[in-house]
Amino acid sequence: MDGQLLAWWVLAIVGSLSAVMMVLSRNPVHSVLYLVANFLTLVGIYFLLSAPMMAVVQFVVYAGAIMILFLFVVMFFMSPEARRWLRPEIKSQWVFGTLLTVMMLTVVYISLFTSGRVNQGELEMGRPTIAMAGAAENPREELGHPAGLGVRMFSYHALPFEIAGLLLLAALLGAVLVARDERSEGRQHLAHEFEKAEEAVAEEVQA
């Protein structure tokens, strides 16, 4: 077992445990932190899978930005009574949910296992290794090289890229629109009007 594989196992175990803890935790703040931990292990795994760019993006965008957003929401809107809704969940939902999840996992693993068996011979005939992946004469053609990714992204995948940009813009507008509280704005405006009216009355009284 070489060092890379050892590192992978460590990361995988930590990641799985943190995922399980995230689900089982009763405190949403803890859940968020467990999920951050899970994402950080994923960063390592991406490095091991020769996807450095992917790892960096995961680190910055997911473990950084998105999870901070989650943390904010959880912390801002957690009232002291918030813990009370963390009572035990419906039993039947637990039971059936777990049952189905296990079934799904079983099915996925069985199919993974069988397909792995079918392809075993093919794999042994010299499927790529990390050494081979990095063996290109032009470094841009190495797996996960940011330059190569960029070229591919802005040529072949230009349209999905643009559409994703549009989607982000729409999400931005939508988020602002949904989260804005129109009633409170109106109330503020009204209060402002009242203030002005009172001032005017006061001025008149003074005069």
Partner: peptide
């Protein structure tokens, strides 16, 4: 839950024929 049940069913059917 229903959604998952449906998904699992399809997976089972697929796997059955695959096996």
């Amino acid at each position: 839950l229903y959604l998952l049940a449906g998904a699992v069913m399809f997976m089972l059917i697929n796997m059955w024929s695959y096996l």
